[in-house]
Write a protein that binds this DNA or RNA. Sequence first.
DNA 1: GGTTTGACCCGTT
DNA 2: CAACGGGCCAAAC
Length: 108
Amino acid sequence: MNELYRNIYRLVAQIPEGRVATYGQIAALTGNPRAARTVGWAMHSVPRELRLPCHRVVNRAGQLAPLHIFGPGMQRALLEAEGVTFNRQGCINMRAHLWRGPKDQAGY
DNA sequence: GGTTTGACCCGTT
DNA sequence: CAACGGGCCAAAC
């Protein structure tokens, strides 16, 4: 396990409920702003034992990664259960739920 | 060891 | 404002 992956996993694990982060954001926080794809691959290769909220990681468009995680429509249900709202286009309301960063956890 | 693909992002047309 | 193409990083063939 490389440190890059550990950073990614850690950041993803720090995403609070009701909030979503983008691959680019995670990549930037890991020190590789252009490694968004790597983050996606890391999510693909993430063990379930870590219980990482991969369903809270979405693309820039606010669209969820198509049925890769638990099942079709399952991801949206999970996010909705956490309080995430979706707009008419089926995309997450990034304006309201986009994760501001690890510091957002400190409070505010 | 080089080439292709992938849960992506940004700039230009 | 929406669509198209190029670019970056890592893993699989």
